[in-house]
Amino acid sequence: MSVNERETRASSLPDPFVPIRRSLRERIGRPKVSVVLSVVWLLIVIAWAIIPQAFTPLDPIAGNAAQAQQPPSLEHLFGTDATGRDMFTRVVYGSINSLSGALIAVSVGFVIGTAIGVIAGSSRRILDDILMRIVDVFLAIPSLLLSLSIIILLGFGTAQAAIAVGFTSVAAFARLSRSEVVRVRGSDYVEAAFASGGRFPVVLWRHVLPNSLTAVLALAALQFGTAVLSISTLGFLGYGAPPPTPEWGLMIAEGRNYIATAWWLTTLPGAVVVLVVLAANRVSAAIAAKGRIS
């Protein structure tokens, strides 16, 4: 009289109590085309940042005056600017600024925000209240103004802009990680772990954190896209890298002067920004969806 005989039901209705034995591949499901494309595109942009010379033989800073203001062609995919610099080369070399900036920003937000959120979510009422009120204050200041205030303090530059952007996401990370910790803490399996004699730090490490993490990771991917946007905005306003650094926002700002004659100087770098942000957001959504399934 085996257990399986007793309990297995042949029905394959989507019923939570029917044994589900699926391979990893089945559980993740066939990856969606848009997710695959997003990942591939992000990998390409990362490759630009690491080995730009593999993608273009030209120099991002030194221009060839003879070839100034050329529209996109096979030779110059994104055209050339007023000093004859190849725009595609500048976009490729610019990715390191945007990506490393976004990485710094997300790290700042993730580390500080998640630390605050986890502490708030796992501590008693008073500390929780104090920490979350502090977070509320950061939320009350519009994010661009907050990053501008920090930039005034730190000065202009890529790293400074990145840190400033990072601080604006602290509140989002703190709120999400707190609510995730609170959600997981309220679950029966965490109570069961305490009932099994678990001490608080052990239960936090073994059960609460692993189960809270997926949503926070999804937010990190989302914030990566947002950070790319914000950093390029600060670059556009002139608070990021100084010229002639090939920074995406700055390039668009420089291209504005030729808006009537050379559309490609602004349109194409901007399109690259849009695609990077789109891809990061798509990956974020995929992570979040996977978290909900498993």
């Binding site: 926002g249 668009i252 808006i259 349109t267 901007g270 920004v273 849009v274 942000v277 789109l278 957001n281």
Partner: peptide
């Protein structure tokens, strides 16, 4: 959400 505001204005 993926569109930079400044770029949108320029376009």
């Amino acid at each position: 959400v993926a569109v930079p505001v400044f770029w949108l204005g320029i376009v």
